[in-house]
């Protein structure tokens, strides 16, 4: 689908496909919830939406046991080192979904204490717009990430195959 340079040059071996399939259906999310978006994240895991139907029910609060970090909420400059540290503690391959306007770009807080998008310091695979995104939107984002894992299009794969990380300069 969306290979940054439009090429499909690398071979997806069987093992990779297998691994992708396994990974995609057993994402262990680590919700990094800080603000309003975290409240909406709670809706996603509770009765009405029930994220477990997509194989991602084991919400882990410990970075060592998770491979998907969902950044939900505003990240401030004071919080940034913590986010970075937690990301670094996660096991590879690790994926990041940034949920909501604040995590993606800073949203309407163009302000002195707010990080203008978490991709300033960690690579982001999927951006989910909304303020807060509806639960459906987040689940849509998770499904999109599953596709990307299957097709080897995540930041992890890009780095592995030496493709430049394009997001850090975008926006």
């Amino acid at each position: 689908m969306r290979q940054p340079d439009g090429s499909s040059s690398f071979l997806t071996t069987r093992v990779d496909a297998m691994l992708g399939w396994v990974r995609k259906n057993s994402l262990w999310p680590l919700p990094f919830g800080t603000a309003c978006c975290a409240i909406e994240f709670m809706s996603v895991v509770s009765s009405h939406y029930d994220l477990s139907r997509f194989g991602a029910e084991v919400v882990r609060f410990s970075p060592r046991q998770a491979d998907l970090m969902i950044v939900a909420g505003t990240i401030t400059d004071k919080m940034a080192p913590v986010v970075k540290r937690i990301y670094e503690q996660m096991a590879e391959p690790r994926y990041v979904i940034s949920m909501g306007a604040c995590a993606c770009t800073g949203g309407f807080y163009r302000a002195y204490h707010v990080v203008q998008g978490v991709d300033e310091f960690i690579p982001v695979d999927v951006y989910v717009p909304g303020c807060p995104p509806t639960p459906e939107a987040l689940m849509h984002g998770i499904l999109k990430l599953q596709d990307m894992i299957q097709n080897g299009e995540t930041q992890h794969d890009r780095l592995k195959h030496g493709k430049p990380d394009t997001t850090a300069t975008a926006g």
């Binding site: 800080t34 603000a35 401030t76 919080m79 913590v82 604040c102 807080y109 302000a111 002195y112 707010v114």
Partner: peptide, 27 residues
């Protein structure tokens, strides 16, 4: 850790535009 500068932001926006910011105080 969640200091989002509400007060500074409200000084740079019109009166009515502050309403969406207030929503995000006690969300």
């Amino acid at each position: 850790y969640l200091h989002r500068c509400f007060e500074k932001m409200s000084e740079t926006h019109g009166w009515q535009q502050v309403i969406p910011y207030t929503d995000r105080l006690n969300y």
